[in-house]
Design a protein around this nucleic acid. Sequence first.
DNA 1: TCCACCATGTAACTGGTTACATGATTAC
DNA 2: GTAATCATGTAACCAGTTACATGGTGGA
Lengths: 199, 199
Amino acid sequence: MKTTAIPLLGYALLGLLHQKERSGYDLRKVFAETAMGNYSSSPGAIYPALERLEAGGLIRGKVEEAGRLRRRCVYRLSPKGLAELKKWLARPIERTDVLRGVPELMLRFAFLDRALGAEAAVSFLQNFGSVLKDYADGLESYLRDNRASMPLSGRLALESGIRGYYGLHEWTAYAIREYRKSQPMSASHPSKRTQGGGK
Amino acid sequence: MKTTAIPLLGYALLGLLHQKERSGYDLRKVFAETAMGNYSSSPGAIYPALERLEAGGLIRGKVEEAGRLRRRCVYRLSPKGLAELKKWLARPIERTDVLRGVPELMLRFAFLDRALGAEAAVSFLQNFGSVLKDYADGLESYLRDNRASMPLSGRLALESGIRGYYGLHEWTAYAIREYRKSQPMSASHPSKRTQGGGK
DNA sequence: TCCACCATGTAACTGGTTACATGATTAC
DNA sequence: GTAATCATGTAACCAGTTACATGGTGGA
């Protein structure tokens, strides 16, 4: 039955549809106009992706005929789609995720608290932070060992990566503080797991 | 005659082959083992990409038979390939480039001084810095206008982007200082163009 | 003998890109 | 009437993914 793994764009669509029901056109506008500027937005990407999701039973479209300008099709998440979204959001973060690209992780984070709650968002941030630390430390020791043999531009490019990951690590700490600030936090229960380095 | 535009992986290969001649296997190892961990590295990506580049006359392969373990094919850049690489490296940076992804720009930078010299690298950094500043400023004003209506996680995700771009902007200034430090710098000539915002 | 490593290749599938087509409605 | 905007679709093309195939060499 496996629907051959959902590509990133598919998850972006699921997350947006979880916020509220939208048409393909609405979704395109989101990609075109908001800070989600990465991600396709071309009709040749969006509409087929929506069809695939619907075929897989993850979303359901309803054609609106009412006095509108032109018939349009509004999609909403199905229970199965919500489950799939949650599964994606809840995946533990590993270094390969960081390697594959931070934007994907930020996308997950952006959808996370709505779908799984603030506590899950904080766990995510802790997990993310520790993986970032590990990864940045790894790059830094690589730099230390190879510094002498690297061309200047290569060294600088690597340093920009290191800076970026440490910066992101600081951001996770900041973000956790913001979460704590925004919530009374049910007090009691001690931080569970998560903080402590992946794999 | 247009060879249908070179994909990013193609440029990555050209840049690496400009450093020194390598076989497909060598190239895969670079992607697999160095900090260039993004970029495919799977044989199904590399070998066809090399074939395309060779078909386009950008690289030339020579089969080594000598006592080695197994016959291997070592590629080197052709003059046409070098020209193409330089053209790519010399493209002025615009905000869409930032939007499409910083890693691509870092890749260009990493190859830049070898192919075009330190001065071009500094120009690139100045151009990059000013585009980053503009872009980050734009995101920041977007945040200012929409802060109230954004969910916490969305706001934080956006803030991470803003921090990241400002951080990168600082890195460009640092990198320029490193270049100046490493070189006497031919003194005289005033910074040409470049600094001053794209488009 | 068999494993590990060097080294290249390829076939099936998938999803994204660009570019074009269509058509209804509102505003000028 | 014509341009802009809303709104959806699709066809041709291309590159990357996974997974498998092949085959030579050195060492246990």
